[in-house]
Design a protein around this nucleic acid. Sequence first.
DNA 1: TTCATAGTTCGATCTTAGTCGAACCATGGA
DNA 2: TCCATGGTTCGACTAAGATCGAACTATGAA
Lengths: 239, 239
Amino acid sequence: MKEGPNIAQIAALIGDPARANMLTALMSGKALTVSELAGEAGVTLQTASSHLAKLSAGGLLRQRKQGRHKYVSLANDDVAHVLEGLMGLAAGAGQVRTRTGPKDPALRAARVCYNHLAGDRGTQMFDSLVARGHLIIDDGHLHLTPSGSAYVRDLGVDLDGLTRGTAPLCRECLDWSERRSHLAGSLGRALLARFEDLSWVRRHKDCRLVTFTPTGTRAFDKAFPVASTRRSMGAPAHQ
Amino acid sequence: MKEGPNIAQIAALIGDPARANMLTALMSGKALTVSELAGEAGVTLQTASSHLAKLSAGGLLRQRKQGRHKYVSLANDDVAHVLEGLMGLAAGAGQVRTRTGPKDPALRAARVCYNHLAGDRGTQMFDSLVARGHLIIDDGHLHLTPSGSAYVRDLGVDLDGLTRGTAPLCRECLDWSERRSHLAGSLGRALLARFEDLSWVRRHKDCRLVTFTPTGTRAFDKAFPVASTRRSMGAPAHQ
DNA sequence: TTCATAGTTCGATCTTAGTCGAACCATGGA
DNA sequence: TCCATGGTTCGACTAAGATCGAACTATGAA
């Protein structure tokens, strides 16, 4: 008994409502200041400061000082991945937030997950890349094939700049709304950034929502066509 | 702000030390009684009962009554998946349990994750199946190819009985010690069960440890040979 | 230098929830 | 029928920690 890492501390860290709100806000991928996070969580500045210190000590956050501002963001993709998993459990258990708001359907369609595209659009892109052999799973990791490299280069992604980094290029991330994989990792981030540059999408200012422009919708569907096997058959039976 | 499912409740549920100990114990995949879990958590029976009621209400557990015993197990693979993710974060943050015990290296080698094989041996099996085309990722899901179906049938797994179930056949699960994928889902469970039948492995009575017999080691390495690209090159650089 | 803003530290308060003793219910065996 | 065992419910106690006011530090602007 009692083997393995200690879950309780880290889960308790996420388990406080104020801290959970902050982490959820940071899932937008943007670095936020202490004051902004205090607003998100609905607590005063001192309380927020104390919470953020604890989250940082727990390794969940990364902080950068810039002038008299302090910018806080999630530590890495792993943290985002666990948070998405928790959202999946919460959604499954019917623990949807009481004030679920009108934005919920839009969020399920497209949103940012830390820094990459998630939701229906995110899984569409992932599936499309896999179906056409641009992305394969091998050796336990996700890999970009040569055809995939060429493809994302054509889309205008600076792949060489990415591969120099130490962070993994491709990662899977499980979607809480779709319960399927979408693409994370530095490539996932770069693609979303590219979509913004191309004005295919617009990230909402203060939430995780991502809206597609009319031209963006067409271009995206052309770049990442859906396999005929699914989506035409309605939602896949699952669970 | 405040969009998406409510993480805090579910995380707080996991965040109590006593409950976290119970959940960790249940990662062994076995159904345990209330008394046994009370022992695991180091609390009295009435405290354990209260905790288990909360965990069940949160959808994390499944309970079965049998005579005057009540058997408790994890609700599903999703819960196990999130718990593994949390263990990964905790391990990464150096939150390893203080009394980490001598069993830790053995646990990293082979252990059960809810009901399937995890640890180094688990990722070996996963990688081997993928490398030989028995397992592919497609449409966002893991799929068993025809050659894979034949292969596991040869190993003695009753595949037809499995495919009738509603639970997904193949799933990925992220390993906290290896930080790589291993095989979950009903096939993962069936394979581990088969290894036990064949006396390749023995599950430890009261922890997650899985030990390979000498003949089991040989047979397993023959059935799931390691790709020459890794494992010969030492630990992969990651993160 | 002076002021304003961003953030931290400290201390006091107060609520939440984990804990267990005791009594109670249910099942199974003798 | 009686007893032992497994589990639940209730209530009281207690400890942990979230919260905020107040005082303090640091950066930047005027």
